[in-house]
């Protein structure tokens, strides 16, 4: 796979540029932030009309963990994500965040599309992420800081229309991060980007997650992306979790034998043909 070899090269470059990533940040406890909240999904089911997508699903995610959910299209992964993000309500069961609900827990979502307001400048788009706190005096300052976090300081007064796809998605990330969420839910946020931009964005995602310590849930159909970023990979099939894999590897993860082995396991599961 060409993407794979490219990734190895760039992962090396990334590590050289950012020595902080080379520390033993793989374990959740080693990180400074630690302000993520645990997520408990209890007996959740979701039906659209007569069609049942999820049935009686249980899942517990530790505070500050990075969990990836992979699965074929139609496996219910996006539905599960939307339930966790509070965009839809489950038909049965409940989702809870530590001792808070979705509204008070600070759950932020990043979509596959940037979904920026085309009529607002980049900085105002980031301020949208502050929600009701946007009227506070430090709103602008916080937005500027979030934009700095995604390395887009220079674009603050631009219209979204003039940005590249990767830059737009970075603005969307800044918007999601500006309120310092305790849970960040990512719905294939890199799916529409080209291979190179994607690798840069993966590095960026990993860095802000390590910095801020939120609980992250990433839905993706890219197995290597899941293994590169997540502490734990869930394989979803027909609305059930068929595989739950811990990835205890050092970050940043290049393309080592261990990574490849985990990817193989997941791919076999997804393709459903044991060797």
């Amino acid at each position: 796979m060409t993407t794979g070899s490219l990734e190895t090269v760039l992962a090396g470059v990334r590590a050289a540029e950012r020595p902080d990533l080379r520390s033993d940040a793989g374990s959740v406890r080693a990180r400074a932030g630690g302000k993520g909240v645990p997520i408990t999904v209890r007996g959740v089911g979701k039906s659209f009309g007569a069609h049942q997508v999820l049935a009686n699903l249980d899942l517990h995610i530790k505070a500050g963990q990075f969990v990836a959910i992979v699965g074929r299209s139609g496996s219910g992964k996006s539905t599960l994500l939307r339930l966790i993000a509070g965009l839809d309500t489950p038909t049965t069961g409940s989702v809870s965040f530590g001792d808070a609900d979705a509204r008070t827990a600070g759950v932020r979502i990043m979509f596959q599309e940037p979904r920026l307001l085309p009529w607002a400048r980049v900085l105002s788009n980031v301020e949208v992420g502050l929600g009701a706190e946007r009227k506070r005096a430090d709103a602008r300052e916080r937005a500027v800081r979030a934009l700095h976090e995604v390395e887009l300081d220079a674009k603050r007064d631009q219209w979204p229309a003039v940005l590249s796809g990767g830059q737009r998605q970075r603005v969307a990330l800044a918007r999601a991060l500006v309120s310092q969420p305790r849970v960040l839910v990512l719905d294939e946020p890199l799916g529409a980007l080209d291979a190179l931009t994607r690798i840069t964005m993966q590095g960026l995602l990993e860095r802000v997650w390590l910095d801020q310590g939120f609980t992250a849930i990433l839905v993706t159909h890219d197995v290597s992306e899941a293994v590169a970023l997540a502490d734990r990979v869930l394989v979803l099939e027909d609305g059930r979790i068929v595989e739950d894999i811990q990835v205890n590897l050092k970050r940043p993860r290049g393309r080592s034998g261990a990574v490849a082995a985990i990817e193989d396991t997941i791919l076999r599961e997804l393709l459903g043909k044991p060797e």
Binding site: A85, L87, R108, I109, R115, V128, G129, G131, A132
Partner: peptide, 8 residues
């Protein structure tokens, strides 16, 4: 949907 999810 984005606006709603960001509490507008």
């Amino acid at each position: 949907e984005m606006g709603r999810s960001y509490g507008m």
